Amino acid sequence: MKRVVLSMVLTALSVVAFAQSGSEEVTSKNSWLKVGINAGVPFGNLSKTSNFTLGAELKGQVMSTNHVGLGLTTGYNHFFPKDGFKNFGTVPLGLFVRYYPKSHGFFAGTDAGYSFVTGVEGATGGVYVRPQLGYHNYSWNVFAFYNGIFRSEENGSSMQYAGIGATYNIRFHKR
């Protein structure tokens, strides 16, 4: 599993590096950080132990073309437990791709990688996927998402939730 995640990260870094090679440089027009929050409702087996999730995210994006953004993502998602269960969280580490048909309006994309489980003794994470649909403009992205963390049977059941989120674009400035 670790080899798969490492391969995905190295592939994404290679794509980003080659997409920016030549005369292009990282500018506020083609690269930025995204800082955001999200909230979700667990379903499936996860709904037996948690009522609600609240998270923070950090993404670094490079526009490989006028319509496609690539990047790295991380964050923290906290799961608020039902009575009799303990607090826990997840820390995703992954790659993402976004498709922006126009400079403002609809976008679609997905995050994928590995999500680590925190706060549960002996628990391990799993591979995650997080497809998104939303609206974007120069500064903001507002979106709906599904998040699935798929774990092997011996490590526990899969963790699934759906929700909404927003990120703010922090642009790089030349000095």
Rank of each mutant, 00 (worst) to 15 (best):
residue 149 I to Y: 04
residue 61 Q to C: 10
residue 26 V to I: 13
residue 75 G to V: 03
residue 134 G to R: 00
residue 58 L to K: 09
residue 145 F to W: 09
residue 74 T to P: 02
residue 153 E to W: 10
residue 26 V to L: 11
residue 63 M to I: 01
residue 50 S to Q: 15
residue 47 S to T: 10
residue 117 V to I: 11
residue 65 T to C: 03
residue 33 L to C: 05
residue 46 L to C: 11
residue 7 S to M: 12
residue 135 Y to F: 02
residue 158 S to I: 02
residue 2 K to S: 15
residue 112 A to I: 15
residue 169 N to A: 12
residue 151 R to D: 06
residue 29 K to T: 14
residue 40 G to M: 13
residue 96 F to C: 05
residue 61 Q to T: 14
residue 117 V to Q: 05
residue 91 V to Q: 07
residue 107 F to W: 05
residue 113 G to F: 05
residue 66 N to Y: 08
residue 23 S to Q: 13
residue 96 F to Y: 13
residue 122 G to C: 09
residue 26 V to G: 04
residue 117 V to A: 00
residue 56 A to T: 02
residue 41 V to Y: 13
residue 19 A to F: 06
residue 125 G to V: 08
residue 3 R to L: 11
residue 118 T to H: 07
residue 167 T to Q: 10
residue 65 T to M: 01
residue 73 T to E: 11
residue 49 T to H: 00
residue 120 V to T: 11
residue 113 G to D: 00
residue 142 V to T: 03
residue 29 K to D: 15
residue 78 H to Y: 14
residue 163 G to L: 02
residue 148 G to D: 08
residue 66 N to L: 05
residue 156 G to S: 05
residue 46 L to M: 13
residue 98 R to Q: 15
residue 16 V to F: 06
residue 43 F to W: 14
residue 171 R to Y: 15
residue 169 N to W: 01
residue 170 I to S: 00
residue 160 Q to K: 13
residue 114 Y to R: 04
residue 28 S to V: 10
residue 121 E to K: 14
residue 49 T to M: 00
residue 161 Y to P: 01
residue 18 F to T: 03
residue 15 V to Q: 01
residue 57 E to M: 08
residue 131 P to W: 01
residue 158 S to Q: 08
residue 1 M to F: 08
residue 23 S to C: 06
residue 64 S to G: 10
residue 156 G to M: 02
residue 31 S to L: 05
residue 78 H to C: 09
residue 76 Y to Q: 12
residue 108 A to H: 02
residue 96 F to P: 03
residue 105 G to N: 06
residue 63 M to N: 12
residue 147 N to E: 12
residue 59 K to G: 07
residue 171 R to D: 13
residue 81 P to R: 12
residue 38 N to Q: 13
residue 52 F to T: 10
residue 105 G to Q: 06
residue 41 V to I: 15
residue 39 A to I: 13
residue 131 P to R: 01
residue 84 G to T: 06
residue 137 N to G: 03
residue 71 G to D: 02
residue 143 F to V: 01
residue 155 N to E: 14
residue 160 Q to Y: 14
residue 169 N to K: 13
residue 110 T to R: 04
residue 137 N to E: 03
residue 27 T to A: 02
residue 73 T to N: 13
residue 61 Q to P: 03
residue 23 S to A: 15
